[in-house]
Write a protein that binds this DNA or RNA. Sequence first.
DNA 1: TGCCTAGATGTTTACGTAAACATTCAACGT
DNA 2: ACGTTGAATGTTTACGTAAACATCTAGGCA
Lengths: 373, 373
Amino acid sequence: MDLDAQAHRSSALPAGGAQRGGSGIPGGRRKQRVSMADVAKLAGVSSQTVSRVSTGHPSVVDSTRRQVLAAMRQLGYRPNSAARALRYGRFNTIGVILFGLSSTGNSRTVEAIAAHAAAEGYAITLIPVGVPTQDNVLGAFTRMGELAVDGVVIIIEVHLLDASTVALPPGVHMVVVDSDAGDRYPVVDTDQADGARQAVHHLIDLGHRTVWHVAGPAESYAGERRTAAWRQTLTEAGLPIPPIERGDWSAESGYRAGLRLADQAGCTAIFVANDQMALGVLRALNERGRTVPAQVSVVGFDDLPDASSYQPPLTTVHQDFAAVGQRCVQTLLRQIHDEPIDPGTNLVPTRLIVRSSTAPPPLADRAARECRG
Amino acid sequence: MDLDAQAHRSSALPAGGAQRGGSGIPGGRRKQRVSMADVAKLAGVSSQTVSRVSTGHPSVVDSTRRQVLAAMRQLGYRPNSAARALRYGRFNTIGVILFGLSSTGNSRTVEAIAAHAAAEGYAITLIPVGVPTQDNVLGAFTRMGELAVDGVVIIIEVHLLDASTVALPPGVHMVVVDSDAGDRYPVVDTDQADGARQAVHHLIDLGHRTVWHVAGPAESYAGERRTAAWRQTLTEAGLPIPPIERGDWSAESGYRAGLRLADQAGCTAIFVANDQMALGVLRALNERGRTVPAQVSVVGFDDLPDASSYQPPLTTVHQDFAAVGQRCVQTLLRQIHDEPIDPGTNLVPTRLIVRSSTAPPPLADRAARECRG
DNA sequence: TGCCTAGATGTTTACGTAAACATTCAACGT
DNA sequence: ACGTTGAATGTTTACGTAAACATCTAGGCA
């Protein structure tokens, strides 16, 4: 790898554009990049032939092709994607607008998006929004308008986009992840409701009289969907609905919520809205001497890679982030290629992973319905 | 937001490029994007004036500027970044080559890179490498060569780049994260060695007779650096060097290593090469009835957000991923702008976060040197 | 032999932008 | 009054690529 040579070259060049290069004089101004014309000259063909070789056009005779390829290698030619994009009117790039990658699922979703986009010949550009204020989101949209993207995946609570002043630049397609705006935009999302339902049902089926809940922040639609499904599942089962504890997705907030729940006498089962908070809940219960799962059962949501190593290994709802990313790319590319897309929300199924943090309640707390079995 | 209008428009258009548009006839073929010329025509000025307004050039009289801005808004003009990139020879984009975002620090580093790049007017493009084979890395480099980036941050064990056949396309600058190739490429890295040293010293200072070690995979230079520093620190302290247990960074592998260590009689202190494996170690020790920190002390590395909620809260080495990302961007931009860069490795300091997983060893195991204090 | 066909290659042009250069015009000084 | 200046704006051109069109060559067939 010739890093050194490169560094030397660039530092040896005349600094600014002082020479104001006459048209084609190489070496005058920094002839930064090798163009097709350069390759063509060396190979003794026209630049169009170089173009044909570059794009794999069939009607180039083999000897010519080899000659051109040799010249390309010799000069270190690489196609100028800006010129290509200009020519084609396409960037072959997908933008991803998000708050941050540190949030649990985002990084894995983005990873999947990147992987699948790459497989389709698309690169992805990250457009981070620092703080999720409406102003910042608008700013991201403005920036995105100037960005070299053919479409965007928006991994942001969509209600932040509802300011009527936002005008999405025409020609930019979009897919929204993690939202309930199913009828306004194409949406891909994990089936939050069904996941929560499975979690709560699991606990009910084990014989618990009810299921307590540590919810995510109220601003999160994904969180709210999980909470709503928790409530509905309990209602359908004719069980009482305990008061909600609320966290901010962090393990620390789960710990605080867990301390409060540990003091609730009748609390034998907890559905926690994500695994990180569940980690905190487990610690709180342990500190308060309430054993899991003998005295209290805990179910999480996400199935983080670490969840199987919690103490005890966590029963949780598995989210298929890879599938979400894959469907995002697929939906977006269909739009970009002017193909029809299935309207409405594209739900990715979840499944419950049963580990060691759930068990039937202590005998004293066992529900009557358990006796059916 | 006029998503609907957009959708209708695009579906109402003639599908393929059947019309093969005569040169400038609008409406023939899809006149996809609004150009400066369109704005100029509407505003009754030359396209150069539109350009001047667009770039904020001072010599445009206010009335003209307002006229142009109005026309821009009316037509929904947005600059074509491909044309700009072609004109300027710059993309204002930084590429990031990595394996995956799920790996611990990567997502946070990338996040920081994205944030700082955005602040400098640069977007970032993700170039994921599926499996870290040499072939794939080469593939990524090839793709990157064709990509619209002015520089790349490489978050990949650098020895995968050492195939002599890799020719980095000239004109693309690079910074390597997480490597020991300090003299060949500009490198930004967490000070792995010092972090490990702090961790081991902490345990020694608590009076442990030696410190056992759960290492990362042998292929990881970052991991090897931590291991080497662990060994050196013990050696300098004149302490014996126990056999190494090795994991693959995952909590599960940490668990398995922990089970093996739990059976080692003299093991009272463990330095684990990352927090995730430490989580597994904690579980293994707990299962084997060895209490932390009373019987065994554990120190991790990374300071994941969750580490403070482990059981017990983990003493660990804090990595400043944000600083790493920031310095990457800074170093890269200096190269891109032809400014001199400080050669060699740019080390980001770490600091030990002492929580509840470390304590002096049980009396029977206390080292003689402890009596000095 | 000469025309026709098809495949290989060369030439022209447009994509949207902005630097460089050219032009216009009003304000100013002598 | 007239030339000079400089600010505002218009015109030309190049950036690198690839489609569209033009040209050229060799081989097939009457």
